[in-house]
Nucleic acid binder design. Structure first.
Lengths: 235, 235
DNA sequence: ATACTTAGTTGTACAGTCAAACTAACTTAG
DNA sequence: CTAAGTTAGTTTGACTGTACAACTAAGTAT
């Protein structure tokens, strides 16, 4: 009865947005783009998540659309792209009923330093200062992405996707600590990370100012690993 | 440059589908609806997940739309409704580029026994026999929902939403076992479930054929609880 | 009464973490 | 050349929570 699939029913605006994270300057940062300043646009000049309308002629599916948006702003294809969820309502876009499919991506630092689009810029997530108000409901989406990232980091190997190809264990631990925003216990972290069978040592060592450290890399084709316990801080 | 928000761009078809789970006859079951048999419809007569087009005049947001679909088929409002994800591509619906926002709901057994819509029917998920082929990409969506449910059950209190208001600990354990499809260790289950501060005893006891058992209920306004370890089977 | 069933508890072995102290390898200052 | 500083990584012992099995408890059926 209520199931009248009328093809001519008005359809919601459909967009895809991507929350792109990277570790830069020892902080978790997110990529934002500035909206065009034309007054005909909603939220002119405001900062927003990278994204835009689905191109039903060019995009095979939602993920392809997300990859396209990501590539357009960063020039790279993320090693990690996950669907975050969707937000749709009558009021989130002044132009009418709209729904966005949100993704979140993790970039290693070196990839995040590449050629950005002109209207794109990195902002610290823990934006006490400076992180601007966001257009649409993008603040809510960003908050959901940070929550999801933090939650998953508690029991998965996600931060490994924020690392360069080769890294040391202390560097990996520092990445975990930045994402979680709290210190972790050294020896427990080591034991569990090695037991997780997620990374493997490479022949080389990293020479630094101090004692050299073993280099590791992600085992190839490894899905995120689940730990059986959460990480706890020392003290 | 690539950001031309043309309002007149063709828009994808937009639907909401709901995967509704319940425990019935000691098995995890899912509610399916039969599509109309008119040849003008896609997948005529096939079984599909309950759902349909977003009504941009009547639905405030996606979740309200999901609640509406759920209520239409079961007559109730689920105590647990969570967004599962979205699926969108050029090919999933023969009528054109379409995207669906999928939700999943958990119903307690007594609510699942109520007045179903005429075209709706329960099917066992572990459908060795009988569970029909599904229309669209609904088999994929259902599989994702089962995976998500099983994963979350490993470390959250989700199955509590499949229970009636009052239940005993062994009954709750049986629900976990049905969802996970494996036996759990009794005393570890008890210890952790009680330590989770999720349920509270009520004054009454359940009289059965054997020793009476303490009745519990969900603490009100409790979000799903995360455990610090996964459940392990005995043996 | 005795056996059977299911609810719930107790006790021991064990695995993994916490936390601090330790060793190791390098650099820099004197 | 030596001593102090820094960071990498290991060892150690106390402790905690779980796994597992054996136990007690309270009812029913024969």
């Amino acid at each position: 009865m209520q199931e009248k699939p009328e093809l001519d029913f008005p359809r919601p605006l459909t967009t895809v947005d991507v929350v792109i994270f990277a570790i830069r300057s020892d902080a978790l940062q997110v990529l934002l783009v500035q909206r065009p300043k034309a007054e005909s646009e909603p939220f002119p000049g405001a900062w927003a998540l990278p994204g835009g309308f689905v191109d039903i002629a060019g995009d095979r599916d939602l993920e392809a659309c997300a990859v396209r948006k990501l590539k357009a702003k960063t020039g790279v294809v993320s090693p990690y792209l996950e669907q975050l969820g969707s937000w749709g309502s009558a009021t989130r876009d002044p132009r009418g009923w709209s729904a966005t499919h949100a993704y979140f991506a993790l970039l290693p630092e070196h990839a995040a330093g590449g050629a950005l689009a002109a209207d794109a810029q990195w902002f610290a997530v823990e934006g006490e200062k400076a992180r601007p108000k966001l257009a649409f409901d993008h603040a809510e989406i960003l908050q959901a992405a940070v929550l999801r990232l933090r939650n998953k980091v508690e029991y998965t190997s996600l931060p490994a996707y924020l690392m360069p190809q080769e890294f040391t264990l202390p560097e990996l631990q520092r990445t975990y600590e930045i994402v979680l925003d709290r210190p972790l216990e050294k020896s427990a972290f080591r034991t569990r990370m090695l037991a997780a069978d997620l990374i493997e040592p490479v022949a080389k060592m990293r020479k630094g100012p101090n004692r050299p450290a073993q280099l590791y890399r992600l085992k190839k084709a490894k899905a995120p690993v689940f730990f059986t316990r959460t990480f706890n801080p020392p003290g």
